[in-house]
Write a protein that binds this DNA or RNA. Structure first.
Lengths: 268, 268
DNA sequence: CAGTGGTCTAGACCACACT
DNA sequence: GTGTGGTCTAGACCACTGC
């Protein structure tokens, strides 16, 4: 974060004693509320890794003096970032960059719940890596990952077991460049959630995701890997996960067995 | 809304000149922030129908003087209600009670999207009422609707067609008492969304819903009504919809054909 | 024009966590 | 105690809407 950038309103100031300095390029969009500009500045700091996942960001008061705005304005910016799960506020301690690690919430985006009990009752999932290789991006994968067709990508195929029962078959596609150095060995030795490893090893934090869900029937290989009958109905979940700048960083195609689990969704 | 109730903090006042009046029962939970108490009071007004869907609620300034708090406190309460889609703020006009009517958003909770184009491009859905009768609640339905087994309930079965193609088969269960007077005729003559009719005719507004999603295969009757082959994979969507007090008011079991549509979900 | 919500400030005190 | 975020107030001005 460059503290040299002072937010400029573009319009007249609103009672604040901030004379817009000369030569202020509109890094943040002009004519937008001050707190939105602050939000953009904070977002830049997050994106550029000035504050890493799990770290403490400066206090509201410090940010207020740094940006030459009131504490209330900084507060509103942080409030919105916290609402987007990018920051976490802890009364008495400070504001932290959200992280996939530490949290006992094992799977950030997984909405599959067991019919009996809750997510914690079934304990840790078992991971079984089926395959992991580098290859050239097919056209459809390339489109989702915003890379060119034929660019190097990583493809990981794995099965997740809950309570000993194979439940999810996943095909994970990652862009090759940001994940340079990710090997099958690294994957196999890993214990925690994959997204936590992405943060720790590659500095890539997944912030948001879109899912497209369909019903399909199990193919021969699907049914073998998931230990179900051929033509068993499965939930097809195609997820695109994004980093800070709405940059797609992962395409994950999952097949969920839904006889003892269900996909839970809350509508508001 | 009874303006007679003044919110009480329970703890000492925080610089506000509000002397807690005598005989203030803790309608809102004690020891909670003022704005939360205001939120509860507003919620009561919504639940009791003081302001009906689509109507204008009093201005922030009026509510502030009525509740003897500052405008900022009312603002924070309204902000949260607006974030929950219970109120809609319109700059220069006022704050309105959210409604399923007017909005061109035809289906409040339906997340099914066509593969090509967006929701608006496929035009209006065609509704085909298959069946509608009153009967005694089976145990599982009764549990979802928070009524006793055997209580009178309504069951509506219908098919939704998009672009002429049967796509959704729905089984809708409603508690009998609140929906007294709902007939097959009334359903058939209705043009707009069902939830809009619930508001207008019965004063019941759906505020929130939970869905459980699974993959299933079409039964003989399913495949007939949806014009697909037997054993076609279908998305099973079980939705429980709630009114203001987290009171369940509808159980909707849907089967979605997902060869030309998909269920869209955004994860944050 | 008046009235509404939207933004911004300045200052106060409370609740909480760490030392 | 010190420092953090959380709440609350009072007053100012801006932006939008409709008369």
């Amino acid at each position: 974060m460059s503290p040299s950038t002072t937010p400029s309103n573009g319009t007249t100031d609103q009672g604040s004693g901030i004379p817009p300095g000369p030569g202020e390029a509109a890094l943040a969009p002009a004519f937008s509320p001050l707190y939105q500009q602050i939000k953009s500045l904070l977002l830049n700091g997050l994106r550029l890794g000035e504050w890493k996942p799990g770290e403490l960001i400066p206090s509201e008061i410090e940010l207020a003096t740094r940006f030459r705005v009131s504490q209330g304005t900084v507060r509103k910016a942080i409030d919105e970032l916290a609402a987007d799960n990018l920051l976490i506020r802890r009364q008495g301690r400070g504001t932290f960059v959200a992280t996939h690690a530490e949290h006992q919430v094992q799977y950030r985006f997984l909405k599959l719940m067991p019919d009996k009990g809750d997510a914690s009752s079934q304990g840790q999932a078992q991971r079984q890596i089926v395959d992991c290789k580098r290859l050239r991006a097919p056209a459809d994968v390339a489109r989702h990952l915003a890379v060119r067709t034929g660019e190097p990508v990583l493809r990981i195929q794995r099965v997740l077991h809950f309570a000993g029962k194979p439940t999810i078959l996943e095909d994970i596609w990652l862009p090759g460049a940001p994940f340079k150095g990710l090997t099958t060995e690294r994957l196999r030795q890993d214990q925690g959630p994959m997204y936590a490893m992405f943060e720790a090893e590659f500095g890539i934090r997944m912030v948001r995701a879109d899912e497209k869900i369909r019903a399909v029937v199990a193919s021969a290989t699907d049914s073998f890997l998931l230990a179900v009958a051929v033509a068993t109905p499965l939930l097809s979940v195609e997820r695109t996960a994004f980093t800070y700048n709405d940059t797609p960083m992962e395409l994950r195609r999952g097949l969920y067995v839904t006889d003892t689990h269900y996909y839970r969704n809350a509508l508001n």
